[in-house]
Simulated scan of single mutants.
Amino acid sequence: MDPHIAEAVKRPDLVSLRPDLVCLRFESMKLHSALGAVRHLLETGVVRPGDTLVDSSSGIYAHALALACHRYGMKCHIVGSTTVDRTLRVQLEILGATVEQVRPSEDLRLDQESRVRRIAEILARNPTYHWMRQYHDDIHYLGYREVAARLDREIPDGPLTLVGGVGSGASTGALATWLREAGRDVSLVGVQPFGSVTFGAQHVADPDMIIAGIGSAIEFRNVRHALYDRIHWVGFDCALSGAVQLLRDTGIFAGLSTGAAHLAAHWERRRDGARTHVFIAPDTGHRYVDDAYARHREAKDPDALKPHEITDLRDLRRPWSTAARADLRLPNSPRPADRRD
């Protein structure tokens, strides 16, 4: 029996779609990130019950942090983007979190930078608040250790290819790290939207793609570029096709990043059938109904889609490109300031 709903909601499902293709499905993946981080902060005495935790979020992490604070008796303050909709905001307020949203901006960089500036103002007035820094503090790796252990237990021995959105770097980076430390042969494939700076795609725009969650317009220090073996940049049309096909074939209703990961995993599987391929579904598809699933008739047959393979970021192009990470000229990713215990 779970002591709190957060412990139940965080538990993922492992769904075998084919003998060598598995979906790691979460209702809300970032609960692992938030619960693990808050628990570690309490255990190490960095914060105490009753303290206020603050962070910026486009939505999913806000809900995860609010539930983690509810679970451990903390206060929560969220600086949210305009993607925090009414349904989520009402939940956050009832859970006891305080929420403020920055002014709407069509420029994601300005949106993210304004949220960071607002947090700095809040901390200056409230020095006892603790900034969670989901994008930069590698304590957010800790909560995924148990997920990696389950993958190691339940997936037969042999080489794995793990496919998922890069985002803040904590989820895919942590799972690959823990699995490799357990001795598994893991190839890590990161999914990115066009326009994200994380792997150098900021010069290719995709106005339809919902970038928040799997990419970034600012640098995330939790992303360790060297962990990734291959990158797929997937546009809206391809991500939609992957998501619709996944729902049609398997009944799994998930977000756009899942559609992109599903598409990339199928391509990787065709390239190397000797590995078990696991792709991550980090959330459900409910918040994508109006902007994506309502256009399901536009979805293409994923088997008819293939990526443009590149070795130079100048050749990056929509709707789908891929490259081995070793072929890309990228800056060394800075290490987070905090130690991963």
Rank of each mutant, 00 (worst) to 15 (best):
C238F: 04
Y228D: 00
I60M: 05
S33K: 02
P159Y: 04
S321G: 03
A281I: 00
V244P: 00
E154Y: 11
T98F: 03
D229C: 01
Y293K: 01
R39E: 15
R224E: 15
N126Y: 13
I119T: 04
I119D: 04
V54N: 01
T128F: 02
E146S: 08
D237K: 05
S333N: 07
T250F: 10
V278W: 10
A324G: 10
A176Q: 03
L88Y: 02
A323T: 03
S28L: 10
S321E: 06
G45C: 05
E93I: 02
K75M: 05
I60V: 07
V79W: 07
L14M: 09
E181H: 09
S56N: 05
D301V: 01
H225L: 10
R118A: 13
G251P: 09
S241C: 04
I139L: 12
G235F: 02
V46K: 14
D85G: 08
L42I: 03
T284A: 11
L256E: 15
D301M: 05
H140Y: 15
Y61A: 02
I94G: 04
T276D: 01
R271T: 04
Y129V: 09
I122N: 11
E93T: 11
A274L: 02
Q91F: 12
L162G: 05
E27F: 08
H203K: 13
G73L: 09
G50S: 09
D272R: 10
